[in-house]
Each structure stands twice: as C-alpha cells, then as structure tokens.
Design a protein around this nucleic acid. Sequence first.
RNA 1: GCCCGCGUGGUGGAAUGGUAGACACAUGAGACUUAAAAUCUCCCGGCCGCAAGGCCGUGCCGGUUCGAGUCCGGCCGCGGGCACCA
Length: 848
Amino acid sequence: MSRYSPAEIEPKWQKAWDQAETFKAKRDPQKPKYYVLEMFPYPSGRIHMGHVRNYTMGDVVARTKAAQGFSVLHPMGWDAFGMPAENAAMERGGHPKDWTYGNIADMRGQMKPLGLSIDWSREFATCDPEYYGQQQAMFIDMMEKGLVYRKNAVVNWDPVDMTVLANEQVIDGRGWRSNALVERRELTQWFFKISDYSAELLSALDGLKDWPEKVRLMQANWIGQSRGLQFAFATKGAPAGFEKIEVYTTRPDTLMGASFAAISPDHPLAKTLETTDAKIAEFVAECRRVGTSAEALETAEKKGMDTGIRVVHPLDPAWELPVYIANFILMDYGTGAIFGCPAHDARDFEFATKYGLAIPPVFVAEGAEEDALTEPFVPMKSEKVRYIRGFAGEAVQTGEAAIAAAITHAEANGYGKGMTNYRLRDWGISRQRYWGCPIPVVHCPECGIVPEKKENLPVRLPDDVSFDQPGNPLDRHPTWRDTRCPACGIHAKRETDTMDTFVDSSWYYARFTSPHAGTPTVMEDADYWMNVDQYIGGIEHAILHLLYSRFFARAMFKTGHLPGKAIEPFNALFTQGMVTHEIYMTRDANGRPVYHLPEDVTEGKLADGTAVEVVPSAKMSKSKKNVVDPMNIIAAFGADTARWFVLSDSPPERDVEWTASGAEASAKHLGRVWTLAHRVSEMPETHKGAADDDLRRATARAVADVTAGIEGFAFNKSIAKLYEFTGVLSRADASRDVLAESLRTLAQLMSPMTPHLAEEVWAMLGGVGLVANAPWPKPDPALLVDDNVTLPIQINGKRRAEISVPKDMPADQIEKIALAQEDVVKFLAGQPVKKLIVVPGRIINVVV
RNA sequence: GCCCGCGUGGUGGAAUGGUAGACACAUGAGACUUAAAAUCUCCCGGCCGCAAGGCCGUGCCGGUUCGAGUCCGGCCGCGGGCACCA
C-alpha cells in the first residue's frame, strides 16, 4: 500500500478495537470515571450528517478522556417509541415493531463504520419490553409517592395524530409532529406532578454552571415564576358555596384602580352558573370552541359576559365591582380569577374600553399630573412613579417597592397573602396511541384504579393489532383490554393510554449505568457512573427533554432509583449546531420550486445544462433535498474524513456548512498526513537533521494547543493547530527518531478526531499497542517557553516596529533597546517621550 | 410586546484589553507533465505607490484607556426563545 486507503484501514482498526474490547465500560475503583452521552437518536432508518457531527463530538471527548486515564462510559441506544412507526404501519402495512427494529438494525449498521468508541454491549431500545417494563415499575413507585395523578383536563387534542399533546408539544397552535391545528378537548388524563418541583427546578438552574446560559434562561422563562398577592373578594348575589372568589395578581399596588373582576369560563362558578343560565351556558360554550392556535388567539376579541354578581372591594366595603366571565382568563394559572385594572394593563384596558368600564389611573409618571388615559400606562416595575391612588408605601416609589408594600399591607390587615406562582403546568403524559409504553394500571369496577402487580410487569404491548382505522388499537383490542383486577380478581379493564415518549427519554441516561438489570437501576452502578459528565445534543431539546429529565431524576431519587447526587443528572451540557447545506432550486412551468440533490448539480448546473438558483444554506432536510448522505461520504472518502470535516471550520456550537470542496480538502489533508508518516517510516535509521530541538518545541506547543482546544470544546481550533503542526512536520529538518516521535504524537493528537488514521500512523512509526490505549501526551513545560520573544513597539497606539529580546530581560533594558531601535528613532524625530509602557512578553507603547 | 444572543476579508472563522484576519475554503498566478489527473509553490481586506512604505479598516455614533474586534452608553440590522400567565 503506497497511499492513504481508508477503505482498507478503517475496517481493520475497528476489528482490532472490537477484539481488544477497547471501549467496554468497566467500573474501575482505581480510576476516576467519566460519563459522556450524546442524545440518543430516533430510529428513522437513516443516519444523517447531524448525527455524525453529534456523535463525533462525543467521541472526541470520550477518546480524549480515556487517554487521560478516566474510566469512560460512552453508550448508545434508541428512542424507539413514537408516531412514525404507527404512521408507517398505516401507510405501508406491517407492524410498528418490525419497522422499528428493522430501522435500528439499519442505523446501527450505518453507525458502526464511523468508528465511534461506543460500548455497544450496553445498547437498548426504549421499545424493548425489558426497558419499558422497568419504566412501568417506576410509574407504580411514583404513584405511591404521589407523583402521578389523574384529572379531568382541558387538553390539546391533535386531530390528525388523534392524540393529546402536552403544552410543550404545541408549537404556534399546531402539533409538534403532525403540524395540525390543535383543538381543545376535555378528557381524563394521567399527569406527573412536575409542578411540585417548580421552585426547585428553577433555583437549581443556578447550580448548572456548565450548561449554556441560554438553555438555563429558556428553562427559567418556561417555569415562569411570579410573585404576587392572592386575596378573596366577598360576593353579592352569587350561588351558595361562592361567598368568596379568590383572585391572584402580580400588581397588588394597583388595587385602587380596579374596575371589574373576571373569571375563567372553566372556573367552578362559571360551571355552576351555566347550569341555570342559558345565556351564560351559550357564552361559555362559545369560549371553549375557540381553538388554541396562535392565529385564533391573536385575532380573538377580548369577550366577556356580566354575570350580574357583584364583589366588594377589599379596601372599601362600599365599593362594588361587576364580575365578568371572560374568554382570556386561564383556569390553570393562579386561581382562574382576576381583578381588572385597565389603567395599567393592556388587556384589561381593551376589555374595559369595550364594556364601558371606568379606567381610573393609580399612578402617573414622576412629575406628571393625572389625565384621562387614551392608552394603558405600563412602565417598567423598576421605574419610579407617583402614586395618586396608592395605599401602601411612599407616594413616589418604584412599582417593585409598591408591590412589596401592598403585600405587606394585605398581610398586616388580613385580607390577602403574598404568593409565588409558576407558569409551569403538570406534565400530561397520556397518549391515545399504540406504540408507546403502556400505563400499568387497571380500572376495576370495585376497587377503582389499581396499579398492576410488579411481578406481572412488563405489561406488554399485544402484537396482534391492526392500523386500518384511526384511533388507538389498544382501545379496540379484543382480549388485551379485558383483564382481571390485580387487587380483587374480578373482571376489569386495562388502561389503554400509553405514555408520552418523552417519558422514555427522561431516564435512559440512568439505565445505561446498568442496562440489563432486573430493576430500573442498580444503586452501585448508578452511584459509580452518575452523573453524566458531558451531555451533548441539539438546542431544540432545551426545554422539553432537559426539563423532563431534571424532574425525572428527582422522582427517581424520591422513589429510591437514583442517589441524591444525581438529581441534576447532567453536569455539563453542550448544544451543538446543525449541519447545513446550500439548496439548489429550479422552477416548474407553474413557477413552483423544484429542488435538486447536491450530487445532481455541478458548477451551478444540472446534467442537462439548466442553471440552478442557489438558496442560502439551511438545515439539511429531505423536502429541500439539500442532504448529503453520510454513507456516500464514507464510501467516497472514509469515516475519518467525514469526522474531520464536521469538526473543522466552525465552532461546535454553531452551524457548519457542508461543502463538497471542504470534504475533499479534508480527505486531501488526511492523505498528506499518511504520506508524511509513510515517508518517515521509510527513512534510514541514521537520517539526521539540523533542527531537532525546533521540532521538539513545535511538538510540545501542538500538544498544549490541541489539548486546550479539545478541553474547551473548540474542536475547530484544535484542528487548525493540527493543520499547522502537520505543516511544520512536513518541512522539518530533523532526525528520523525525532520525526517519528513527533509523528506518533501527531497520531495521538489526531486520534480523537480521526481514530483509524491515527492507529495506522502510530503503527507505521513503531507505536506500542493501540493508540486508543496510549496515555495522552503531556508537553514538557521547558519546551513551551521560548528563550526569545518578539515585542511589537507601538507609538501612540500604532504599531511601528518590533524587537526581539530574551524572554526574561528586565523592563528598563527593554525600554533602552526599544528607544534606540532605528524605526522608533525615525518616528519620534526627537519628540520628547511622555510615557513609556512596557508589558513584559507582550508589547511596548511609546506615547509622545 | 417581553427576554436573550450575534454583527470581523469573496466564504467558514482566529484573536487572556496588547502585532486584527491564525487555520481552512473559493478565486488567481506558477512549477512538474507531451497532455490531463494527482501533487507542490506563491498571492489573496480596501486605497495610494515601481518599490520602500503610507493611509483607512472588525454594522453605525459616542465614551473609558497609553492601547478597544474585545469594556461602557446609544442607534441600526439579523437570529432565537416566550407570548391572553393576571
């Protein structure tokens, strides 16, 4: 072999790693552990470049940590439940199980050639009964601990997937997967009590120092903490049992600007009134018909109906306010009832204007006088304003101060209480689907809801189902549904809802620590391997998956399945960018866009010579046809080239644009490295060079810089340094021994990125064993220090000259040399020096 | 509307407050070759200049500093998240 041939070397080294079980994770008390995890894939059947980038980054970390002496856990599995398998069954026939396991086999076959340092013995799919059975066991434990409950709830109903969606899965009023407009329906649903942890999930974000600030902020916003006042209005003319209405407000300082009270159409009072009042019943029904789509909400008018009921103002018994049912009040936030202060709230203003209600201002801008309002006055809470209808605190104060004073006033006078509220709702997990984890409970006519006995788990999905009609096949299954009560043994009905697939992915990281155990986890293993030291995945999971996982880890601690240290399961999170590509487009006769695959376009033209329009880069997607199949790249250039390319050029957190020329350049570079290694390996032992020390120094520098890049998650910079170092090596006038040693170091430094080529180079130059097992190089500190430094000389902040001086020359000597330098003398032209700044090892600035 | 983030050559991007443009892509010029492929070398922010060199330059305006891509204030533009949450 006389040239770089990835097709030969890649399978060879993969086999060598397999045989040596190089990547098998072992609990080793002698070593510190390191757990690297990339978000596991949905088994669609094809890997894409995004996967390659994600897993290559994880592999760089895993291989580096292993070389640095850690006992590394780097597993892989499959997020295998979910709608696409059922859709495939509906469209093409067949069974979701066969489709899913077939896809898993295909994708595993595509991933293995990438040469990832994964412990495949830990692989599992969430649709394995072995996995979801343990999930059911945890569900039962969570029921016992009060973390699971059932309630009647207005839910988001996806009419296409015929299932319920969580709030988080509704994007702009559409189902996150089907893209169908979501409707509101009232159903009995299973919920996880994530709201028990609202405060903690929020405050614990501060401890996640190695998470991106952006993700922490997004989660904080999502949890949505607010501080306010809860108080009760006494009612007049309300039905029995409604002597009081509790309301919640974040602006208690505006209490004297109240002009009405409003309740949600789903409020118990509204529900009582609708039974006796036909007009109210009609209005409430109309409110419920309105969809939850963004369009519907934005265009929906603020509508209300006066109930005729009156409430008494808490600060003035003589002051009565009307009670409206209003379509914009949400039942599941606060108490489902508010008081309206139109002067200082845009929404209340719109409502009051429409129904002719008073708009009394509570405060005015500092220095302004009271005036009739034509629009709501809503300054920042941190801004000082002058209260003209204040009742607590100073006349001139910030909104914040006034709110605090109002809460104190309410508590001191006994009419209200300071309250903290959260936007985060409980997590509805019921899905009316087949391909998910069955909820392990039985509905017994005698005992009610009874959890399945643990010895009967897993509650397996039946195989004999059909998808020829919409809805949930479990619900119409002849025998699966009918069972016996685990408590009393009489005929009973199995729960037919399955769990949201986000439940499956909320604990898989813990399962990897003991993937085939007969309990969800094994404490010893969880204790050794948890937490995940480095988690890597897409920013699109910033809220859903990561928030659910944080909740689930807490629930697993409460149910005894994880140690307390694991309640924040991911020590460090990295969100990588996407792989993008240009889009090539022509138009058909009707002017509609037609997209073309990159391989069909050469120099901006199709094979028939038609010029294509180039649309700026976007995420690779099938619909835009701007996809590059990793399998084609591996076939053409090898896995190392694909790995090298996705890490080069762009910082890992940003998108990287795939270009054919870039991929070719990567392949060429790897070829140059191979050729260089080959050339040195053929040199006679006696070959001597004049500049051994220079190469030793450059090698030490490369070790330091490449290592720093990897540890700082700046793989693009590591790669830039490797390019530079390869250039130095190829020009080096050094002895064979020193060249070989430097090349072995190069192999080690490249091994996290291009492991196969690294093994080959290592072997060619007499490296002992596998480079994958070689300890990470450490630079000799003495070689990192240069004896001489070049110092630029600035005159009035502009660079005019430079001098080279010994590293440790004292500042006063440097000053003398600098001022004597000929360009400096020329520039100064005799002007007196006002100031002279010498920054040792850095720069000299002369001020005149 | 509210909350974030980002603006550097033709392109992707480097740069602890200290020589702006490392490294790479593209373009151009050249070497080798009968030729092509492959490989290698050089140039590559703008303006002036034969050159040496000079002037300008990190979205725009201002400030702090001996020194600002970097820090501060204000604008403009782009991107993201949330959005009837009382």
